[in-house]
Computed example of a mutant assay.
Amino acid sequence: MNIIYHDVGGTHSAVIATYIHLNKLPKDKVPTIQEILNVPMFDKLKSKQIGRLILHGIDEFGNRVYTLSRLYHGHPVTNAIRSIPTMAGIDENEILLVDTSPTVNLLMKIGGGSSRRFGMIFFGRPLVAYGTMKTYKNILNLVNKVKIKIAPN
Rank of each mutant, 00 (worst) to 15 (best):
I3N: 02
D7P: 07
V8M: 10
G10V: 09
S13G: 04
V15P: 03
I16V: 15
A17H: 07
A17F: 05
Y19K: 07
I20Y: 00
H21E: 01
H21K: 00
H21M: 01
L22N: 02
K24C: 04
P26R: 00
P26V: 01
K27T: 15
K27H: 12
K27Y: 08
K27G: 06
D28E: 11
V30H: 09
V30I: 15
T32M: 07
I33S: 03
L37T: 02
N38P: 03
N38F: 10
V39C: 02
P40D: 04
M41A: 11
F42P: 06
D43P: 04
D43Y: 10
K44L: 11
K46N: 14
K46A: 14
S47P: 12
Q49C: 06
R52P: 00
L53W: 08
L53Y: 10
L53C: 09
L55N: 09
L55K: 13
H56P: 06
H56K: 03
H56L: 00
G57V: 09
G57N: 03
I58Y: 01
D59H: 02
E60G: 10
G62T: 00
G62S: 09
N63I: 01
T67V: 06
L68A: 07
S69A: 15
S69M: 04
L71C: 11
Y72S: 13
H73E: 11
G74W: 04
G74V: 08
V77W: 06
T78E: 11
T78C: 09
N79S: 14
A80I: 06
A80T: 13
I81C: 06
R82Y: 05
I84V: 15
P85M: 07
T86N: 12
M87R: 13
A88T: 09
A88K: 12
G89R: 01
G89A: 04
I90D: 00
D91Y: 07
D91E: 10
E94I: 07
E94T: 12
L96G: 08
L97T: 05
V98F: 04
D99Q: 07
T100A: 11
T100G: 06
S101M: 14
T103G: 02
N105R: 07
L106E: 12
L107R: 11
K109W: 13
K109C: 10
I110L: 13
I110S: 01
G112I: 08
G113F: 10
S115R: 03
R116K: 09
R116P: 03
M120H: 13
M120N: 10
M120R: 14
I121C: 03
I121F: 13
I121A: 09
F122G: 12
G124N: 03
R125H: 10
R125C: 06
P126A: 04
P126M: 03
L127K: 15
V128E: 05
A129D: 02
Y130Q: 12
Y130F: 15
G131V: 05
K134R: 13
T135F: 05
Y136F: 12
Y136S: 02
N138D: 13
N141H: 08
V143I: 03
V143R: 05
V143G: 02
N144C: 00
K145Q: 13
V146C: 02
V146G: 02
V146N: 01
K147C: 03
K149W: 01
N153W: 13
N153L: 11
